[in-house]
Amino acid sequence: MKVLFIGGTGLISEAVSKLAIARGIELYLFNRGKRDDFVPEGAKTIIGDIRDSKAAAAALEGHRFDVVVDWIAFTPEHVSVDIELFRGRTKQYIFISSASAYQKPPQHYIITEEATPLENKYWQYSRDKIACEQLLTEEQAATGFPVTIVRPSFTYGDTMIPAALNSWPHPWSLVARIRAGLPVIVHGDGSSLWTMTHNTDFAKGFVGLLGREEAIGQAYHITSDEVLTWNQIYEAIGDAAGAVPKLVYISSEFLISHDPELEGGLLGDKSVTSVFDNSKIKSLVPEFEATVSFAEGMKRTVAWFEAHPERCTEDKEWNEQMDSIIAAHASGYKK
């Protein structure tokens, strides 16, 4: 099977790329060649920029693929380019959507692909993903474009310390705060439910969809079945770091009042209880089972960072922001 990944070296796609190659798939990565260190052995690279449609068409000239996966399409404009590039040139096109596209807050805390509507008034990112899904569904109805939609939730791996509040470019910052005994913000009271998925587990379900005719016209989320409170999540991060985190509870609304950019990630995602029913992906890929607990995954991640000390960097600006919010919140409780 000949498969093209547009991107293919990101946090989630890297693990999928490795498993796809291990299972004998002929894998091509189409990207700008900026992350060569993350290209798995055995993958073939086509250098190009998908955002330059003419150049992308030239770079892909003569290629046909059994499956095309776009890991970096975020808007209908991005998807429109893919439709023009791959119409009639692939048997399956997989769009990476997001579980944040599901209704926030949901009518029922257990989320299923068919029963939970797509609706997110808090996050433009999610609304754009919904618009992409709608465009692709319409294209399939009109022309038979062979789309499959996959909605990851919070998926992490060796290079990420996953939390509701952390520095994206310097994820070690959270572990450093915990080890230094500095307070760590938890939104709400830490009791809402959430799902963390290791990228190697996600890969098992995803690779099982490649080339599956039954998946055409279908949408799937792929997550762990382990359900945790945010308190348990932060405690597991602390345990992996070898220190008990000093948790400070602050409402999402208060956090957003200090940083409006947090609204999407909190009210549009992580502050809302999200538990996923994975029956649909398991019915098509019965071998899919998430086996990496969050506690185990965090120990792996911390060990990876410690083995790469150059990645154990701290975000001064983010730390200052956390301290500022904590101080402002504490001042409101002074007698």
Rank of each mutant, 00 (worst) to 15 (best):
I149V: 15
S191A: 14
L209S: 10
L135C: 00
P169W: 11
H187C: 03
M196I: 05
G144T: 13
V207H: 04
G238S: 08
D128I: 00
L174F: 14
N166E: 13
F154W: 01
W123M: 03
L228E: 07
P162S: 04
A219E: 04
Q124H: 09
G144C: 08
A163S: 08
L118N: 02
I161L: 12
K129C: 01
G217F: 01
L136N: 01
D158E: 10
P162M: 05
S167W: 15
A236F: 01
T197E: 08
R151Y: 04
N166Q: 14
V227Y: 07
I237Q: 02
G238R: 05
S167P: 09
F145K: 09
T137H: 02
I237R: 04
S191P: 03
S251L: 01
G217L: 04
P183K: 13
A219Y: 00
V147Q: 02
A241Y: 05
P171C: 06
L182T: 04
E213R: 13
Y220T: 02
T116S: 00
W194T: 14
A180N: 14
N231L: 06
A240Q: 02
N199T: 10
Q134C: 07
L193I: 10
Y220I: 06
W168G: 07
Y234I: 11
I185H: 05
I178A: 07
G190L: 01
D239R: 10
Q124R: 11
D239M: 05
A219W: 01
I178C: 06
K204T: 15
W172M: 08
H198I: 10
E139M: 10
F154K: 03
V184R: 11
D158Q: 06
L247R: 13
F202I: 12
D201Q: 09
D201A: 02
C132R: 07
N120D: 07
T229H: 06
E235Y: 05
D239L: 03
P117W: 07
A240M: 02
L247A: 00
L228K: 04
C132Y: 04
E226R: 13
G157T: 03
Y249H: 02
T200N: 03
M196G: 04
G157Q: 05
A131R: 15
G211W: 12
T116V: 00
W172F: 12
L193T: 10
E226C: 11
I237W: 07
R179E: 13
T200P: 01
G190T: 09
G242R: 00
T200A: 03
W230R: 08
A176H: 15
M160P: 00
A180C: 09
H221R: 11
A142T: 05
A203D: 06
Y220W: 01
L210I: 14
I185G: 00
Q124K: 12
F145I: 14
T197K: 12
V175D: 06
T143Q: 10
N120Y: 04
G217S: 08
I233M: 15
Y125P: 09
G205I: 05
P152I: 12
G188V: 12
D201Y: 10
T200C: 04
